[in-house]
Design a protein around this nucleic acid. Structure first.
Length: 201
DNA sequence: AAACAACTCAACCGCTATGAC
DNA sequence: TGTCATAGCGGTTGAGTTGTT
């Protein structure tokens, strides 16, 4: 109860809502000076009455260098659709494959554009043949293994029969080096994932 | 031109994971 | 080993915009 009151009090002192250009400028300067990372500290130092969380989100989604704005290209759309089929709602992983795009942007884009498109495709498929499951193809664990988010662009080494490029290793070999030596490794249980990957067998 | 509906997307919320102590 | 603070994620909300009647 007391904690709740503390939260209420803290929230009442925190500014919310859309960011103004001058706030963006202050945040950008502060990150330039003190570096990216300790958002609670940046929130304090900046003098902005924004939470660290809010500062981090604003930086990550809008102020970070190399952010790409504007509509998605057909290639990006296609990649999102295929990655979503493979990974499900793992927006940060999907966004990591799209340079300059954020997880929030990918998520919004999926929910407003591609979800419908995907559903209508599925609808059409249902009319002819049995539609595939809505669940991701890779139904078991997907883990980040090493490296920094969004720094690699060619983790996908092998191409499977669906045209998805994937790097796969068994959970039995988690201590081994991933052959493709890249950031993300899809770790999955072959028993349950095999039939998902190769439904025709 | 006005009213309403539908859509878009920036921002927030709640939760989990992780690391420091 | 437990607790706390912080970062990061996905789901959700709601203000602003656009389209329709």
């Amino acid at each position: 109860m007391e904690k709740r009151e503390d939260d209420e009090e803290r929230k009442s002192h925190v500014k919310r809502g859309l960011w103004k250009p001058e706030e963006d400028m202050i945040l950008r300067n502060c990150v330039d000076t003190h570096g990216e990372g300790n958002w609670a500290d940046i929130s304090r130092r900046s003098g902005l009455k924004r939470s660290g969380k809010s500062c981090r989100l604003r930086w990550k989604n809008y102020l970070r260098p190399n952010i790409k704005r504007g509509g998605m290209s057909p290639q990006e759309q296609d990649l999102i659709i295929r990655m979503h089929k493979l990974l499900g709602n793992r927006w940060s992983l999907i966004a990591g494959r799209l340079p300059g795009r954020t997880d929030n942007e990918v998520k919004n884009y999926w929910n407003t554009h591609l979800n419908k498109k995907s559903n209508s495709r599925k609808q059409n498929a249902t009319e002819s043949v049995e539609a595939p499951s809505d669940k991701p193809v890779m139904s078991t664990g997907v883990r980040e293994s090493h490296g920094e988010e969004g720094t690699n662009t060619n983790w996908m080494e092998e191409t499977n029969c669906f045209g998805y490029d994937v790097c796969i290793r068994s959970p039995l070999t988690q201590t081994q080096e991933c052959l493709c030596d890249e950031t993300y490794t899809l770790v999955f249980d072959p028993c349950s994932a095999f039939t998902d990957f190769f439904p025709m067998l």
